[in-house]
Design a protein around this nucleic acid. Sequence first.
DNA 1: CAACGGACCTGCCTGC
DNA 2: TGCAGGCAGGTCCGTT
Length: 271
Amino acid sequence: MPELPEVETTRRGIAPHVLGKRLDGALVRNAALRWPVPDDLNERLAGQPVDNVGRRGKYLILTMPRGHLIIHLGMSGSLRICAADTPLKKHDHIDIRLPQQRVMRYHDPRRFGSMHWTPDPVESHPLLAELGVEPLSDDFDGAHLYSLSRGRKIAVKDFIMNTRTVVGVGNIYAAESLFLTGIHPFREAGRISATRYQALAENIKIVLAASIEQGGTTLRDFVTPDSQPGYFAQTLRVYGRTNEPCRACATPIKMARKGQRSTFYCPKCQR
DNA sequence: CAACGGACCTGCCTGC
DNA sequence: TGCAGGCAGGTCCGTT
């Protein structure tokens, strides 16, 4: 489900309900996520106030005096704030218990998401330590993409989706930003000019920021913690638009599969 | 090293 | 109506 805009939308949604609150532990109904949920999660969280609600790439990070709760939503995960006695839906795996009988409820049908606890500096956690730059930071620009890509034969779409290159760019926003820049998704990363990478970096920032403004992209079931859908889907130019006319030149949008993933592009606008 | 495909898991949609 | 097959927003890991 979530790429960076959906995770950021989730972060903003939960923050007012969680920030500064003292957690009353966790209720783990199903610990079988992508990695096992720590069996002492309840004891780790109990009684601790949340000092910060942050994000690194697609990881949400709740910082407490004794450590950090790290949450990844995988493909189908979501968080929702509700009363503790709200009837359970299928795949409601974990409740993070808040004051006054409220909970932050983790729902994840496919269970590709995960939850971790670390008492160490969060950036040293193995899953975060090797992550690339944040796309909306000043560290991310065309020069960064250009220098990292020299000598690489990988397709540019795979290159910008690699979390060591830059975090947060998933299948939707990779396709969209390449369309805006007029770059074919299968072009070799090492054979793209500095000028084009400058434009690509700018378009990645524009697309991600615009989607965050719209509350993310709801394709099937993404909703914010307050149960609102995102509205960026109506802005998509190529993703999911197979055979529909290109918004720039009316050529039918192509869909191609590479590995397990679909990619969408305009065969005329993107070279 | 870099590149690529498989793996994890459930739900939903299509077509026979 | 039932069932098989394909597809889905991520990313780690093993193999070439």
